[in-house]
Design a protein around this nucleic acid. Sequence first.
DNA 1: AAGTGGTCTAGACCACAGG
DNA 2: CTGTGGTCTAGACCACTTC
Lengths: 239, 239
Amino acid sequence: MGKSKFVSIYNDLSEKIHKQRIESGSLLPTENELSAQYRASRETIRKALAMLSRNGYIQKIQGKGSIVLDVSRQTFPISGLTSFRELASHSKDHWKTEVHQLVLLKPDNHLKMLMNLQNDQTVWNVIRSRSVNGEAVILDRDYLIQSIVPMLTADICERSLYDYIENDLGLKIGFAKKEITVERATDEDNRYLTMHEDSHVVVVRSLVYLESAELFQYTESRHRADKFRFVDFARRGHQ
Amino acid sequence: MGKSKFVSIYNDLSEKIHKQRIESGSLLPTENELSAQYRASRETIRKALAMLSRNGYIQKIQGKGSIVLDVSRQTFPISGLTSFRELASHSKDHWKTEVHQLVLLKPDNHLKMLMNLQNDQTVWNVIRSRSVNGEAVILDRDYLIQSIVPMLTADICERSLYDYIENDLGLKIGFAKKEITVERATDEDNRYLTMHEDSHVVVVRSLVYLESAELFQYTESRHRADKFRFVDFARRGHQ
DNA sequence: AAGTGGTCTAGACCACAGG
DNA sequence: CTGTGGTCTAGACCACTTC
């Protein structure tokens, strides 16, 4: 069970910062102090601090210390790879998922090329809408390779695809490449989404890979433009 | 001047991957081999590999090795904090910056609150448009705290603000918090941008901080929606 | 069983901030 | 000058993949 030590230290410190048990603007204890507190070597402490820094919790300043940043206004999660289910559970609003389609497909040429598929491979096609307060604002179209995800049911898709894939199938999701653009709403958008006078959607296209570096999913997530908001934390340089 | 050793190793390996001198899909040499090749300890090699992994160059698999990912289609840079100048220099297109306004302001209440300004602080307000092939597609509105950036000229703004701030003023940019939304074009957008039938803009609002964790800039970057594209690489989990 | 990456350690030296 | 974070090292043990 136990994660690594530096992850535990990261979790402990990030929780303290979130709950304001450590004030923003103040300095964290020094690395040597933390090293003593957590009974860990300094390099282990530094791994935890590096993770805090990457995720916008602290700013390290050489010769001075680690300043705690104001993390209170940052909508959870800042960026990264998170399922809709995980997102919704952090929100106060009432979200609902509706499954409109769940079929096995022989991929067309475009999808074949995009996902680098062999001739005999079939894919699951799932179409779902996400509603908040009765308004459908997100339309998700997923394509999953059947040789990796053999069986799917409407129930799984309504609940959480990622939860099923990770916990029931035991697959581990590694990374994704995403692209965000703005496009005019299609007939399909108008059919499944509650469109207002606004005729635009934000389209997030993702190729999702397992930890084995194997591609297993392509997703097109279409958001009603007026409901779309993306929050990011970025550091200068390539670290 | 030399950077740290692990950054050199990172630069060397990432360049080799970019130039396809290491084939995508193949395995990197093992950490022990790299350790010998670069005459570095294994932990140092691992810092370089962790950076490659974060930036989407490789996927590490325990017990197996580090797989080189296909990085060829990823528009430079994937995400992060990069100035327009740096972006444009990586592109084949012909970009041009035009400065429309450069004034010192007493901030209004909204800006005061947003930037956490004292009563007597003044800010530079810069309005610039970015054109590609004769079409103005980006409108940037910057607000910079004058106590940090004492003097600005149209020439500097036309060239590169970040270049001036980092190289001439010697300030170091640390991180930024960003928010992306889609909005209807304003009169100002219509005045400065070459708007087509499409009446929407993607608005990227950023608060930019120095390495000292001091806020020094607020920017509103307004992109013609049909020209906006954001590419991202995301890993699962908080590492 | 052998080889891979994942973690942790104790110690060393350097670069920078502040008194 | 002291104390801070930044880097590097050599060695140890563990977890996982592969044969």
